[in-house]
Design a protein around this nucleic acid. Structure first.
Length: 421
RNA sequence: GGAGGGUUAGCCUAACUGGUAAGGCAGCGGACUUGAAAUCCGCCGUCCCUUAACGGACUUGGGGGUUCGAGUCCCUCACCCUCCGCCA
């Protein structure tokens, strides 16, 4: 959410920003509501002032043992008028809030203007795409041959898109998660969090999933709780409605959680195997930082996520998302795409974003900076998502005999095993 | 699921039978000081008006109600603690 006063004073800028993302926002409506709201506030506040003054003098009279009937009778009408105005103000504020919540964040000045995926510039690529002297198999074939997972039975349990890992497949998944957690906690200085996998509405609104993406999430209706679509939700909301000590910043957290996404309306393309699933595992990095250094923090975060792929020896590229591809709440975002030889394409395994104070304002996350209280900047990035990572890993390290060479950094997590198959 | 107790500012703690949130600690700025400590003064949640100053409204977990007036009374929801029940 942007600041209401900021929107009021920078209406063209906000309009331009929203248009660049292809979001429709009724700023004319905003201006009308805002204007009316401020008029009513002034009216109501002055009536309340009258009431406060009168009530106080009534209290004084009563204390002195005098009668105050006429005064009280006079105030009764005022109370009704205030009640009416209060209702009007409230209605207006609800509508205003609706409009405010629908306004996307402004892109940072370094974000290129563009319409969508095709216009995201590649910032860098790393590693050679592996060559094979045999036709590389895709992850489904390999998984089948090696007995690593069982999509059929996953479907039997929960429907298509719910993968089931077994044997060394499950072990490999667990190894990847542990490897990433250890890297980020031990080398990069993140504090590990194991949060609830369900979250309430306030959290969802705080990080910006609500109101826009309700249809994309699983909801437990009995308790009005959502299955988290990413650990960003519980971890960013750790400090919701808190004022942090400026000396404690930056705060850096890493969390492994499963992620649940309905992916409504996305059946068909790109849904084979692990490419798009309703449940996947992810290690997420979240930072709360001072506004001044937040863009350097974003570069650092990106580097830390990239290191996962480097250590695993997987070829990847980093792209900077253009305005048209930027998510609702982000001011700047990099995607990391890993190369999957069997699929013959890049797969997105990480998004690293700076939200500036957009989430912090929604969630009320502030810090004390000297004598002042200010909003923090929040950042997060996948570090990284395992399902697609596993795809790239299988397809990159396969041998002609359909074995899997285990990358050295993973061997300690697999009893020193060098090969699977 | 049942019974009782609780939630006041970054933290800690007050407020009569309803009378308009008192203190303390921490932090920030200033005075004093060679410097520091101590001491004193101011600031230290949000919004509106305003160039600014001044001013005003709101804020006692959330939402509603009663009242001229609600931290206080009533209803409701959330969370925390204790006990009982159930349970991996």
């Amino acid at each position: 959410m942007l600041d209401q006063g900021f929107v009021r004073e920078n209406i063209e800028l906000v309009e331009k920003g929203a248009r660049g993302r292809g979001e429709k926002v009724d700023l004319q409506l905003f201006l009308e509501l805002d204007q009316r709201w401020r008029e009513l506030l002034a009216q109501r506040d002055s009536l309340k002032h009258q009431r406060n003054v009168a009530s106080q003098s009534i209290g004084q009279l009563v204390k002195e043992g005098q009668r105050a009937e006429e005064e009280i009778a006079r105030m009764k009408g005022l109370g009704q008028r205030i009640k009416g105005l209060d209702e009007e103000v409230k209605t207006l504020e609800n509508r205003l809030r609706g409009v405010m919540l629908s306004i996307p964040n402004l892109p940072h000045s370094s974000v290129p203007v563009g319409r969508g995926d095709e216009e995201n510039p590649v910032v860098r690529t790393w590693g050679e795409k592996p060559g094979f002297d045999f036709p590389p198999r895709d992850h489904l074939q390999l998984g089948g041959l090696l007995g690593l997972f069982d999509f059929g039975r996953g479907s039997k349990l929960a429907g298509s898109g719910f993968p089931l890992y077994k044997g060394l497949g499950a072990r490999l998944e667990r190894a990847l998660v542990n490897f990433m957690l250890d890297l980020h906690t031990q080398k990069h200085g993140y504090l590990e969090i194991s949060p609830p996998f369900l979250a309430n509405r306030s959290c969802m609104e705080g990080t910006g999933q609500l109101p826009k993406l309700e249809e994309d999430m699983y909801l437990c209706e009995h308790d009005d709780l959502f299955l988290i679509p990413t650990a960003e939700v519980p971890v960013t909301n750790l400090h919701r409605e808190e004022i942090l000590d400026g000396d404690d910043l930056p705060l850096k957290y890493v969390a492994y959680t499963p992620c649940f996404r309905r992916e409504a309306g996305s059946y068909g393309k790109g849904t084979r195997g692990f490419l798009r699933v309703h449940q996947f595992d992810k290690v997420e990095l979240v930072k709360f930082v001072r506004p001044e250094g937040s863009y350097q923090e974003l570069e650092d975060l990106l580097g830390e996520a990239e290191e996962v792929l480097r250590l695993l020896g997987l070829s990847y590229r980093v792209r900077l998302l253009c305005t048209g591809d930027l998510s609702f709440a982000a001011a700047k975002c990099y995607d990391i795409d890993v190369w999957a030889p069997g699929e013959g394409k890049y797969l997105e395994v990480s998004s690293c974003s700076n939200y500036e104070d957009f989430q912090a304002r929604r969630a009320g996350i502030r810090f004390r900076d000297g004598g002042k209280v200010r909003f923090v900047h929040t950042l997060n990035g996948s570090g990284v998502a395992t399902a697609r990572l596993l795809v790239a890993l299988l397809e990159t390290y396969q041998t002609r005999e359909a074995e899997l060479i285990v990358p050295p950094v993973l061997r300690p997590y697999l009893d020193g095993r060098e090969k699977i198959g």
